[in-house]
């Protein structure tokens, strides 16, 4: 397994210290880490879930827009940050693995390194409602 970039290594360290739920994705769009606060939101520990492609994330958590409309991985903020290399913000609805539907505000931004190296994306979550 190839070593992660030092930017991702330090981002994971930073995220692990925060109480705000945070996802970190690598350059190929795969989710490489979410922190303990995000584990509570999703209802699953990262160690149990492991690294996964963004497409699996949207399928497992049944992510929709706030009215229940279907969303493709490219429509969610992290998908935008990864494919279009720009920040994005959106309100989403998803079903946590411990049962409830949750509505969250998500902000995502791309991680851009030296020499225009695209290194991944970060997403930050604010829970607004649990159904």
């Amino acid at each position: 397994m190839a070593q992660k970039s030092v930017e991702l290594i330090l981002l994971r360290q930073w995220a692990s210290y925060l109480t705000t739920p945070i996802f970190v994705a690598g350059p190929d769009g795969g989710l490489v880490y979410y922190n303990e606060a995000a584990e509570e939101l999703l209802g699953r520990k990262f160690d149990d879930a492991g690294e996964m492609p963004l497409r699996d994330l949207t399928r497992i958590f049944e992510i929709t827009d706030e009215l229940g409309g279907a969303l493709s991985p490219e429509d969610i903020p992290m998908g935008v940050a990864l494919t279009e290399h720009r920040p994005a913000h959106r309100r989403l609805r998803f079903r946590a693995l411990d049962g409830p539907w949750r509505i969250v505000d998500v902000t995502s931004f791309p991680i851009e390194g030296h020499d225009e190296q695209h290194l991944g994306a970060v997403a930050i979550f604010w829970e607004t409602q649990t159904e």
Binding site: M1, A2, Q3, K4, I9, L10, Q13
Partner: peptide, 18 residues
């Protein structure tokens, strides 16, 4: 050791490994 939860067990998360 910075940034590794279980240093030195995760080569893919260890700076300088490659």
């Amino acid at each position: 050791a910075l940034g590794v939860h279980d240093f030195p067990q995760e080569p893919d998360w260890t700076s300088g490994y490659d």
